[in-house]
Amino acid sequence: MKRATAIRLALIAAIVLALELLTRTGVIARFVAPPPSEMVAGLWRLLLSGRVQPAIAQTLGKIAIACASAIVVGSAVGVAVQRSRAVADAMAPFFTAYYAVPVYAFYPLMIAIFGVGEAPQVVIGFMLAVVAVVVNTINALDRIPRVLHKTAAVYGMSPLEAARRIYLPHAGPYLATGVKLAVSYSFIGVIGAEFIMSRVGIGHEIVFAYNNFENEIMYPLILFVLLVAGTVNGLFYAWEKRLLSRRSRS
């Protein structure tokens, strides 16, 4: 694994370096993409200037709320749906199809219900994330073998105790997958909603810069979003891997 990590980092470095060379030599036109070094420098200046911090705080706050509520609601719905095999099976095709639905189309509806503030963007993030949690909760519960249900019975556990002591720990790594997806989908949902039709947040700042041909602001901001989302997702990915590795034969 160590070797793979080294190769991966080298690969990323090579890509960044190639991009730097291609932009410096003009093979990639400057208006398409500035050199990565300039993006980083631009991001540094932008952060020092302090003008984007409110937008960043706002966006990250919305993502946190969307993600947390998706995990709570999604787990509850998942547990409820999984209780009946027929219901879970009947809903399966709808869960996959769900990701083809442009949830952003419901934005006007969200505004009508929740007002013009930040709530609609949170709801969009929630809507994208919650289904991933539901699907993974069902999957996690499905993976509990019958013998563990019997074992719970042997110890004479109440359903609640069995859930706490046996089912939840057993399903943990698979539930972590749902949490990981909830994080990335709330990023996608909230930033997407800001991007399309909000007047606040990082997403909006990127569109604003794009419309005003301010590449020196747009690129650093895009870089920032990708870095933050990449780091957070990477951490959850590593967490999930660690939980799963304990289950696989080594």
Partner: peptide, 20 residues
Amino acid sequence: RTVPEGVGVVFQEDASFAWL
């Protein structure tokens, strides 16, 4: 419904707790 105290049960399937 309940397994009485004093009875121990071992199943065919692997019932070890993977998280412990």
